[in-house]
Amino acid sequence: MIESERLLYFRIHQKELRAEDYKSLKNAKSTGQTSSSSVGKRIVLPSSFIGGRRYMDGLYHDCVAICGHVGYPDLFITFTCNSEWPEIKRLLDPLHLKPVDRPDIVCRMFKMKLDMLIKDLKKERFFGKVVADVHTIEFQKRSLPHAHILIFLDSLSKFPNLKDIDKVICAEIPNKFEHPELYKAVKKFMLHGPCGSTNIFSPCMKEGRCSKFYPKSFTDLTTIDAEGYPIYRRRKTGCYAAKRKCGSI
């Protein structure tokens, strides 16, 4: 509904927006480019329309400019909304509603937590001094918002060695006796599958194998493959977790 109102505004205010003066449209007209899509009245969306092509192109150019100024990003962080967050349940449970019934509450809570996460990364310097950050928000098939965050670190805070990667990224199941809360979180949210021969109908299965290449092989050291992607350390520590009656180590 909100987007419909925005589109209506741009449709009835074309003269005020001077949309007919866009250089690209004049060039197209002068070269005689015509198609069946030109039948009817053409409405041009300016770059201020959120989600439009010009708006997205502007964001892309801004990101490229940041990369050109500070270099390549150092960290890629994903942040997904959790419908079981206590703040969401506290609001919806008394009303006997599900998260899908109130996407406005879900999105607002996600945005608040995302802003706090980025603030912590920049102010608290969990990974070091942050000189720039870029993030984009998309919606998964389950209708939950999901953010991809790029973090650009200062030259003195980068992770140039393979051993430095192990300081911030762990692909192993924690010990449930030494880190019980972390173990519960990883077991509930971070385990893939089950897939493969155990569950051939898993959504990740393509042509009889897991499209995400699980299960991963054990490796004692973090390495970089030929394409520059890291192969994270996965030691055979003996830590075990069960998901849907299937075991993972």
Rank of each mutant, 00 (worst) to 15 (best):
C67G: 04
I77F: 01
N161P: 02
L75D: 14
P194W: 00
K245D: 15
R53L: 15
K122T: 02
T34L: 08
K15Q: 13
K15P: 10
M56T: 15
G51P: 01
E181H: 13
Q140N: 12
I43V: 15
L153G: 00
K98F: 08
I2V: 07
F127C: 11
C81D: 07
K119G: 03
F127E: 08
G68N: 14
I118R: 06
V130E: 00
F152Q: 08
A132V: 15
Y214T: 01
F126I: 12
G40S: 02
H135K: 10
P180Y: 11
K187M: 13
H148D: 01
C195I: 04
S48M: 10
R234L: 09
N82Y: 07
I149W: 07
I12R: 07
R42H: 14
S48W: 09
R209S: 07
S37M: 06
G58V: 06
T219I: 06
S143E: 06
K206A: 08
R102I: 01
F76C: 00
N161M: 06
E87S: 05
L92G: 00
F189L: 14
L17K: 03
R53F: 12
F201E: 11
L92T: 03
L153R: 02
L45S: 04
E227N: 09
P103N: 03
Y232W: 06
L221K: 10
A65Q: 15
I169A: 06
I137T: 03
I173W: 01
T78P: 02
F126A: 09
A185Y: 15
L59E: 07
S35A: 11
M205V: 06
L150V: 08
R90H: 00
G32R: 02
P194F: 04
M205P: 00
T34R: 09
P160R: 03
H179F: 02
H192W: 09
R90D: 02
Q140M: 09
K123F: 10
I118L: 14
H61M: 05
F110P: 00
G193M: 00
I2A: 06
K245M: 13
F218L: 06
Y60D: 10
Y9T: 02
S36T: 12
C81L: 08
E172L: 08
R235G: 09
S4M: 13
Q33F: 15
P99C: 03
H69A: 14
N82G: 07
I43R: 15
F177D: 13
C107H: 14
Q140R: 14
L150E: 05
L97E: 08
K176H: 04
P160T: 03
K111N: 15
S37R: 04
K15L: 12
G196E: 00
M56A: 15
M112H: 11
P94C: 00
L75G: 11
L17E: 05
S155P: 04
D93H: 03
D154Y: 00
I249Y: 14
D57L: 13
V39I: 14
I151V: 15
Y60E: 11
A147Q: 02
K98N: 09
L121E: 02
